[in-house]
Every structure is written in structure tokens, then in C-alpha cells.
């Protein structure tokens, strides 16, 4: 199988006299195929940025093979660089240059028509501020400028490392729309982010990395389906009796203060039918679907690590189905 990005067995250890050795990536594999919007997830320090930097020739890999558009990376990157737009972490720019000048210098260096600068600024919503100095930009505006720099060459492959960093909700939505538009135009997108809800909304495929190794990969729907425990959240007028009836019906029930979580329910109507027949009336019956955040935390164990993900945007992410998100402790309780 050939992909736009192929990484096999990537290894990278940082060696420092003071800090000793630190294994950043330990035999990581990644496959991104043409046309995908591919989410790349992992906790802080899991090796995401190192992987992207190695792919783009910014750090030297100790072992492994990498190919971009079939060209060996980083040796043959110059042959395909014009097809790849990338930002890695939060790029910084000279504060005294305007956004327009920053992009123009890149365009000149890369042999891209300077007319593309205004188009790229327009694409990221910075056209009106293009002639302001970068030092006057907010973090979000700098991030947009970085994305604009990646878009300058009309890339066929866009690699975005934490593109939503510093963006406000409106900016995040614009970024999401932009990526969808690009994907709609046939651009392959590899996006790493710690805002898992965003990844779930815009990506069709996902790879999760933890401690330098891939822990899962595949279409988002398949990854989520693998963690679906057929659970339902139930609220009823008589919660104690409802619990007894459902347990009597052979279902796994976990009681909470104002609701029950019922497991092993292939069809939710089984619950309403069981309770209704005994005059216990259901007030709420919601299938509990795992979302990417739950899966992510489950797979990476990030919630139990001393170092948590930098941010999860203030809470749980909505699930694909629109079901309410799951409280992590509850989710683990259900697993148990």
C-alpha cells in the first residue's frame, strides 16, 4: 500500500550531556493516504512533533524509513518540497516584519508568485491585517499567518502541527472550515492537535501515538467503534426499582446519584420495554458513545500520567453521534 506519507519503524533518541538520553520516538509507523484528513494525536512529549520534524528533515532519525509522495525523506525532500506545506509547532516570525512581507520573503525564496501572498492571507482571514507588523498580532493571528505560509505554495499535502493553538472559538471554526475546504479540493491533510473534539469533527482517519509508539490507527469511526460498549444512560421516575428490573433482565447496571449506566445493550428499546412493562417510566434514555477524547485517554493513559495533555478545551468533547460526552471517571467505571 502506498501513501502520501509512509513512516515505518521511526526511532529517535535525543542525547544530552546534561539531561542524558530521552527516547522520543520508538519504532513508530504512520500511513497517510491521498485525500485523507488525518488526525495525529498524542499526549505532550509522546513524539508527535519529533515525528513531524523528522519527516520534514529538521531532526535526524536514528532508524526507520520515511517517504513523502514516494520520495525518501529527508534525502529526497527537495524533489517534493514544492508539494508540501507545513507548519511545525508554533512558528515565530520577526516582529518588525509585516505579515505580508513575511510571506512575500518566503514566496520569493520558494519561487512562488508573489500574487499568492494576498490569496493566502485571504484564506486565513488576515488580509486586512496583512500590512500590520507581526509583533502586533495575537497568538491566534500568528498561527493563522503560519498556516498562510503553509498554504502559499498551494500544497497537495498539508502538515499542520497544532494549528488551533491560540485560536479563539471563531478562529477554530474557521480553521476547521478551511481544512474541510482544502480536503474538498483534494489536499491531503495531516493535522496534529490536542483539541480532540476538533480532530473528531474534521478528520476521517486518526493515528494515536503514546510514548513514541503507535497505539491505534484507522478511520475515526472504526477506532471509536472498537470502544463502543453498547452502554446507555438511563433516568427514570423510580431509579431504585429501575435498577432492580434491569439487573433482573440480565443487564449490567451501574448506579449513580441521578442516573444509571446500563451496559451490554445492543438495542436501547430493550430498556424502555423492560421498564415500561413494570410501570417504571423512562425520563431519559441516551446511548453512550465513546468520543475521541475518551478513546485517547484510554489508549494513552494520559489521564493517569503525571503530565496531562496541555489542554482539552475546557471539558469533554461531544461524540460523533451528538450524544453527551462521558465523564472520564464514569467511563472507567463502566469499563470496570
Amino acid at each position: 500500500m502506498s501513501g502520501v506519507i509512509e513512516i515505518e519503524g521511526l526511532r529517535k533518541t535525543f542525547r544530552s550531556v546534561r539531561k542524558g538520553h530521552r527516547v522520543a520516538v520508538a519504532g513508530f509507523d504512520l500511513l497517510v493516504e491521498a485525500g485523507q484528513v488525518h488526525g495525529f494525536l498524542g499526549p505532550n512529549g509522546s513524539g508527535k512533533t519529533t515525528t513531524l520534524r523528522a519527516l520534514l528533515g529538521l531532526v535526524r532519525a536514528d532508524a526507520g524509513q520515511m517517504r513523502v509522495f514516494g520520495a525518501d525523506a529527508p534525502q529526497s525532500l527537495p524533489q517534493v518540497a514544492h508539494r508540501v506545506g507545513a507548519i511545525v509547532e508554533s512558528p515565530q516570525f520577526f516582529g518588525n516584519f509585516t505579515g505580508h512581507r513575511t510571506l512575500r520573503l518566503l514566496a520569493v525564496a520558494g519561487g512562488v508568485p508573489v500574487s499568492r501572498v494576498d490569496e493566502a492571507l485571504e484564506q486565513v482571514g488576515l488580509r486586512d491585517r496583512g500590512h500590520d507588523r507581526v509583533k502586533g498580532y495575537s497568538l491566534g493571528m500568528k498561527q493563522r499567518l503560519a498556516v498562510a505560509s503553509a498554504l502559499l505554495k498551494r500544497p497537495e499535502l498539508l502538515i499542520l502541527d497544532e494549528p488551533a493553538n491560540g485560536l479563539d472559538p471563531a478562529g477554530i471554526r474557521e480553521m476547521r472550515d478551511l481544512m474541510r475546504t482544502l480536503a474538498g479540493n483534494g489536499v491531503t491533510v495531516l493535522v496534529s492537535s490536542h483539541i480532540l473534539a476538533e480532530i473528531q469533527l474534521i478528520c476521517d482517519h486518526v493515528t494515536i501515538i503514546s510514548r513514541g509508539q503507535r497505539v491505534t490507527a484507522g478511520p475515526v469511526t472504526e477506532v471509536l467503534a472498537g470502544f463502543d460498549r453498547n452502554e446507555c444512560l438511563v433516568r427514570a421516575d423510580d431509579l431504585t426499582r429501575a435498577e432492580q428490573l434491569l439487573q433482573a433482565a440480565g443487564l449490567t447496571v451501574t448506579a449513580h446519584a441521578d442516573h444509571l449506566v446500563v451496559g451490554g445493550v445492543p438495542d436501547p428499546t430493550l430498556i424502555s420495554r423492560t421498564l415500561g412493562e413494570q410501570d417504571v417510566w423512562v425520563r431519559e434514555l441516551t446511548p453512550v458513545r465513546p468520543d475521541l477524547e475518551s478513546v485517547f485517554l484510554e489508549l494513552t493513559g494520559a489521564g493517569q500520567q503525571p503530565t496531562l495533555p496541555r489542554q482539552t478545551d475546557g471539558g469533554s468533547a461531544p461524540g460523533l453521534s451528538g450524544a453527551p460526552s462521558i465523564d472520564l471517571d464514569e467511563f472507567r467505571g463502566v469499563q470496570a
Binding site: 518540497a81 511545525v88 518566503l106 520558494g110
Partner: peptide, 15 residues
């Protein structure tokens, strides 16, 4: 220090 070289290398990956 500012990452300008990295930006440039993303465009011209020949150090």
C-alpha cells in the same frame, strides 16, 4: 532562535 531557519528549510530543505 526565532525559527526563521526552520521556516525556510520547510520551503528549501537543503541545509
Amino acid at each position: 532562535n526565532s525559527g526563521g531557519v526552520v521556516n525556510l528549510l520547510l520551503w528549501r530543505p537543503r541545509r
